[in-house]
Design a protein around this nucleic acid. Structure first.
Length: 164
DNA sequence: CATGTGATTGTTAAG
DNA sequence: CTTAACAATCACATG
């Protein structure tokens, strides 16, 4: 659609630059963030985001979801997550754009929802700084006050899990 | 009991 | 543009 295709060559170069990323052993990312990045639970208040919009699954994941089913069905003996990942990845690359289309379509849809969540999330988190006249007042509160009656009713009790 | 780990690619957010 | 991290899953291992 948009003409310009001179990016072909550049793309390849970027790929090279990104290569190092592949070089590095993966699996380190999680290990590091495990330290306390996303968890950040620690004893401090980790409640940074009340509603954290989780990243929507990419086309690959959507495909994987179905692939996992099939893969497991034919290989019930395989219990390694990495096995499915590798197999799925290999097949995924083998698929044509046309086959990926349906998956990508779903991925595109996810963006719509994600964007919506982000909007709400955006309303609260961002911005910072600037001492100028930043006044953040939540007016939405007056909108819905709801009675706390229903909330403090039985839900709290349910939280208790006697069985351990 | 809870949590991390391993492996895949894609997308998103930030620098 | 480039970099880094996370998204789901399941059995296993460790604290």
């Amino acid at each position: 659609m948009k003409g310009g295709k001179g990016k072909g060559a550049l793309r390849k170069e970027t790929r090279s630059a990104l290569k190092p990323v592949e070089d590095r052993k993966i699996g380190k990312r999680k290990a590091t963030l495990k330290d306390d990045k996303r968890k950040a639970k620690k004893d401090k208040k980790a409640k940074k985001d009340p509603n954290k919009p989780k990243r929507p699954p990419s086309a690959f994941f959507v495909f994987l979801e179905e692939f996992r089913k099939t893969f497991k069905k034919e290989n019930p003996n395989v219990k390694a997550v990495s096995a499915v990942g590798k197999a799925g990845g290999e097949k995924w690359k083998s698929m044509s754009a046309a086959e990926k289309a349906p998956y990508e379509a779903k991925a595109a849809k996810r963006k719509s929802e994600y964007e919506k969540l982000m909007n709400a999330y955006n309303n609260k988190q961002p911005e910072s700084s600037d001492d100028d006249g930043e006044k953040e007042e939540s007016e939405r509160s007056k909108s819905e006050v709801h009675d706390e009656d229903a909330e403090g009713s039985g839900q709290v009790l349910l939280f208790f899990s006697p069985i351990k």
